[in-house]
Amino acid sequence: MLNWIWLGLIVIAIAVATGRDISELSQDRFRNGKGIPLQLTADILKETSPDHFTASVFITKRNLSGFYSPDELKELKRDTVFGTIDIIAHSKSATKILGTASLNLSSDAPIIWKDIANAQGEEKKITGEVIDMIQEPLSGSRFAILIPEQVKFRILAKVANDGLFKTAETAVTIALGLIGIMALWLGIMKIAEAAGLITLLAKMAKPLMVRLFPDVPPEHPAMGAMLSNMAANFLGLSNAATPLGLKAMEELNKLNPNAGTATNAMCMFLTINTSAITLIPATVIAIRLSLGSKTPSDIIIPTFIATLVALTCAVIFNRFIQRFFPIKPAND
């Protein structure tokens, strides 16, 4: 099952990214290689240091729509888009400057510009070449023509960079971040075990647990570990829940005759865990409060009922379908 989900996610991701990239290239969405005419606001370039120039620039919506496909500019709010441009000149004369440039975008820049910036690895900056400064003969307005670096296969690049490399790093950060909290709760758990508290907990909830996990002996330490995980989840102690849950998995695995394959009890335990039943969804309430909700905690009751119903349905469903997933003894 996980094999298919995993394969599916990867294949769909690459197929979608390739498709979107090819469609962008075939429509020439970014007008690669063409220059954007940016008009200088005060018709002057300020020389901040030798060969470094800066100016505030603008482009009208009309000029933009002559340049990009009109669909790109639908969400544009104003008729003029402003920005500032920094130029490092390679050659200059009285009327003309050639150089590399970066256009700093304002917050109301069109999405296509933000996409170009992102493809170049920036938030709000488009880099490229400035090829000319045209003094329009009639009006005397001055333009900087910016040719952005070409944008090709940006989504595939994003899939590789953000999707693969960054998440691989995140995964390790998450795992390593668990070490401390894991050590803490596993230590506490060990004391509770030695003090006989886990067995006591298991005895108290025995009627329920025996029905949920018929394959686990009622007095087995796995029962107590699973219960303490459920209690932690219920009280919203999410950083305690994971270590206790992993402890429970370890105990359940001691009863597993086929290493590497999940037992019925493991699947049931996972199902209960993913139903996320919680007394108080504290994070959500905090966010609602910060966003100015007048009654931030009125979501507690619907949340609780939703999780309770989901939990009950999922437990029944899980029990029902387990027969369709027989355990194949590992021989590969």
Partner: peptide, 25 residues
């Protein structure tokens, strides 16, 4: 995380029940 911690690679029906719980909720 849970299956990984005990080296379980064959998850059987657990993903399906998990998704079912999510749809219901």
């Amino acid at each position: 995380v849970y299956f990984g911690s005990v080296g379980v690679k064959k998850a059987r029906h657990a993903p399906l029940s998990g998704i079912f719980a999510d749809i219901i909720s």
